[in-house]
Design a protein around this nucleic acid. Structure first.
Lengths: 138, 138
DNA sequence: ATTATATCCTATAGATTTAGTAGAGTATGC
DNA sequence: GCATACTCTACTAAATCTATAGGATATAAT
C-alpha cells in the first residue's frame, strides 16, 4: 500500500507543476486545495526540498515552488524519497539492498525471482512517468 | 513491502509443491527447513487451508498437503489471501475497492491513473505465475 | 525597529499493523 | 489411553504511520 505521505507528496508536486513557474505557493493553500493535513504536508515538502526538488521562500508571499520542470521529476525518484524502496523485498532492491534474514541463499529463494519481475515492471512505469504525466487534462 | 506472512506462505506452498502429492508434511518440518517461526507458520497454513488450498491431517503422520496442483495455485490468489489488495491504493483495487477519503473525485486524482498502471502490471505477473514457477530448478 | 507572515525543526502521541508467543482445545493413530 | 499434530483464542512487543504542538528562523511590509 502506498503511504499517505507519498500520495500527498505526489499530489503536492503535481499541484505545484500546474502553477506558474517560480511563483511560491503556500503550504496552507496546497493543503486546503488537496485535502491534506497542513502540518503533515509541511514535513513532506521540507523533505522534497532537501532532496533538491523544491525551492522555498519565507515570509509574506513565500511558499514552495518547483526547482525542476515537471518532466524532470520522475516518479521513481519521488517514490524513493518519500516511500523508500520500490522493491517488495529488500534482497531485490537496487538502491536499498539488504539481505533477507530468513533466507540462507537468495539463489534458492522461491520468492526472489518473482519479486525481481515485479520490481522491474514497476520501475519501468515509475521511470517513464513524470509529474507532468500526472497533471489532469480534463 | 511484502510482509513476512505472505513471503512465508509462498515459501511453504512452494515447499509443499516440491513434495510427493497427498503426503502430509508437518508444520515443524517446513518451519525448520525454511527458517520460519513455527507458531507463526501455523496460523499462515491454517489460513491457506481455510481458503481451500491446503488439506490437513491431525495426529501422528499428520501435517499439511496441497489440495491443488502447483500450476493451479496462482500467486495473485495467494497474495490476496495473505497480504490483501494488490493495488497500492484502495480506490483502484478490483477485489478490495474503497474510496480514498482524501480524494473528492477519483477522476481528477493525479495518482489514480498511475496506480492503475502499476496494478495492471503487477496483476499480470501474479496471474501468470504459479507456485510451480517458484520451484527451484538448480 | 517592529510586526506579521511563512517556512524550518524537534519532539511527541495515538492508532494501526506486524511478527511472534502462550497455552488450552480437538482430532487422529498406535 | 497416550502421544502426536493440527486448531483456536488471546495476548504482547516493536515498529510504522499519521499526524499535532510549539518554538526557531528568515523575510517582507509598515
Amino acid at each position: 500500500m502506498l503511504s499517505r505521505k507519498t500520495k500527498y507528496g505526489l499530489k503536492a508536486l503535481t499541484y505545484l507543476a500546474g502553477q506558474e513557474k517560480n511563483v511560491p505557493i503556500q503550504i496552507s493553500t496546497i493543503a486546503s486545495d488537496e485535502n491534506i493535513s497542513q502540518k503533515f504536508l509541511e514535513s513532506i515538502l521540507l523533505q522534497l526540498k532537501k532532496a533538491g526538488y523544491l525551492g522555498s521562500k519565507k515570509g509574506k508571499g513565500g511558499g514552495y515552488y518547483l526547482l525542476k520542470t515537471a518532466e524532470e521529476v520522475k516518479i521513481d525518484n519521488v517514490y524513493r524519497i518519500l516511500e523508500g524502496p520500490i522493491s517488495m523485498v529488500p534482497c531485490v532492491s537496487l538502491n536499498f539492498y539488504e539481505k533477507c534474514d530468513d533466507c540462507p541463499d537468495e539463489k534458492t529463494c522461491s520468492v526472489h525471482r518473482l519479486m525481481i519481475q515485479v520490481r522491474d515492471n514497476t520501475l519501468k512505469i515509475f521511470e517513464h512517468t513524470s509529474i507532468a504525466d500526472l497533471i489532469n487534462k480534463s
